[in-house]
Design a protein around this nucleic acid. Structure first.
Lengths: 335, 335
DNA sequence: ACGCGCAACGAAATCGATTACGTAGTTCTT
DNA sequence: AAGAACTACGTAATCGATTTCGTTGCGCGT
């Protein structure tokens, strides 16, 4: 900037104003400065600007996953991708949050303070972790995804409704013995269980407790085990709702080995609606990751630009995707 | 820092030295300062430090994917995850590179200069893009993954060997009519084709040109089409190598509809070795994403800390994973 | 001719840290 | 005891931009 100032015969202050499009400058000199800056290949310095303005235009993203898979879940990576694109449009860059500062151990919050993030998004994390609690209850603008903390804006998927729709769908196809294999007991899972039981009540069916079983999200091996248990039951369910699309894949071999064809002998439904599900024709409930990521980013930026704003929460609707893994059963009246 | 200095009765310079563990300070005052800093909840400011030292300890990552899937490929997200972890250990944070600066369009290179990244990693990108060429030929330390540019260190998977191994494996199982459906013609693909043809030469088999066909990576629909074409051939291959594990999934339905069982009627092999492949028992070649990400990060940091260093290239070996999708065929001697 | 208002620009402080260099005090030499 | 050699610390410049608060010059009304 100094060089530009010299070679244009003005002060650095003037250059700064020209570059930032302030009013306080004549069109002639502005053009001169901009042209000069261009031809000198000038690039302003984010650190200096941040130091002075106390704004970095960068957002920290926390993407810790207890199952170690990290970014590997399509659900999360899709949300991240959408979040990233939205942030980009609004002029923010995104950086991963870690527990380290220049190589030595620290806390999430310290790391954010060190980097001066304007805001923070927390996704899919282990919200029981005290460090995460410290982070989301801090003064920084924070948005949480799939978790409602009360103290910061949250964006959540319509988990209860999702399960409700799946159950209704199966019911309408004639199913009465519907099993629900759920993931580990997170808030998301609890929502889904609520949806499941609510739908059952609405429809007047009572699930055998043995049909509601716990697995882990994205754990194909465990899901295979649970599936084996389910189909070994005397009152075997006619339809299984799996924790997610991936899990269903884990069960496929088990079903096949047991001589059960899908959907002729047993029906199956997934959750998430990853690309794969569409290809193999799995009936599932698609979570709208694109909207989730975008909404989360919007909420966060609102919070950044207006910290006093209400900390509302946003529910993003998904939709059922009909495949061919649920059969139509004739309902025997009077049963 | 000023506050600490005041309340400890020393100058800010002394505080800085204490905080950075310089020698030029007595143990007594250092301890006093560190204790004070701790109790005041002091956190040093990355922007100020960066401004002064010209080092940000952050790396830019370029993850553009022509197929729009972005992070959604397990292969890429695994590499990213590993890269991220390695960077973290070494004290670097990672930020996504975009084409925008504070919301207005720009170039990748400009964005990196603006953010003062210490280095840049380019993965899976469309290397034909002039902006990417500009970036990797710039003065910044750059590492490329799965692409060899000559001007910067590169980390690549052993694509040629991977295909070679797959062909040998099939051959040893008795297969002589081996088809290779490859992805779009990138450098990676060319390597794989080389490996394929080399293996055929080594083994003295000559693939029908119709067996070598082009699809797209991760495009299940297109793969399904290509598969249909392959199995409609008069001299149908006995084994198909698919562009990747995902693609194989796309073909499953086609094979099934044609009444072809895997592996009894036709054999199949994938590429990548994603989790899913292991579960469904697909024989495939696993790329070592963990090592790829780690090696890339290491190379980059070496380059950052010693820009004059040789720009070597690193090849990361994968390994064949035996599933149950390749049958054993009795070889008719004299054929 | 005088004063007023406005447009255009500059001087200098500021953000928070780092560091070359200077200085005072202490210990060691011979 | 005088100078050398350290030790421990402070001064002040510096990084690159932003911003406040002037100042200057000019046109215009009366």
């Amino acid at each position: 900037m100094k060089e530009i100032a010299q070679s244009c015969g003005v002060s650095v202050a003037t250059v700064s104003k020209a570059l930032n499009g302030k009013e306080d400058i004549s069109k002639a000199t502005r053009d001169r400065i901009l042209r000069k800056a261009e031809e000198m290949g000038y690039m302003l310095n984010a650190s200096a600007r941040a130091l002075k303005t106390n704004r970095t235009y960068s957002i920290g993203v926390l993407f810790i996953d207890s199952t170690s898979a990290g970014l590997a879940h399509e659900y999360f990576s899709e949300i991240l991708e959408s979040f990233k694109n939205t942030a980009e449009e609004s002029g923010y860059d995104i950086t991963f949050i870690s527990r380290t500062i220049s190589g030595r151990p620290s806390t999430f919050l310290k790391h954010c303070e060190y980097r001066n993030f304007d805001g923070v998004a927390v996704i899919s994390a282990d919200f029981a972790d005290p460090q995460i609690q410290e982070l989301i209850t801090s003064d920084l603008p924070v948005v949480t995804i799939d978790y409602i903390s009360g103290c910061c804006p949250a964006v959540v998927s319509d988990n209860a409704r999702g399960l409700q729709e799946l159950v209704h769908y199966a019911y309408n196809k004639g199913h009465r013995r519907i099993a629900f294999m759920h993931g580990e007991l997170t808030d998301v899972t609890k929502e889904r269980m609520m949806g499941f039981y609510r739908a059952c009540r609405e429809l007047g069916i009572e699930p055998d407790p043995a049909w509601v079983t716990e697995s882990l999200y994205h754990d194909m091996e465990l899901c295979a085990e649970r599936t084996a248990e389910l189909i070994a039951l005397d009152n075997r369910p006619t339809c299984i709702i799996f924790p997610d699309d991936y899990s269903y894949l884990g069960s496929m071999k088990v079903l096949q080995d047991a001589g059960l064809r899908v959907p002729e002998d047993i029906s199956a439904m997934g959750y998430d609606g990853i690309r794969l599900a569409r290809v193999i024709g799995l009936t599932t409930y698609r979570q709208d990751t694109e909207t989730l990521g975008r909404a989360a980013c919007r909420r966060l930026i609102e919070k950044i630009e207006n910290p006093e704003a209400m900390t509302e929460q946003t529910v993003v609707m998904g939709r059922l995707i009909e495949g061919n893994t649920v059969s139509t059963i004739k309902v025997v009246t009077g049963e």
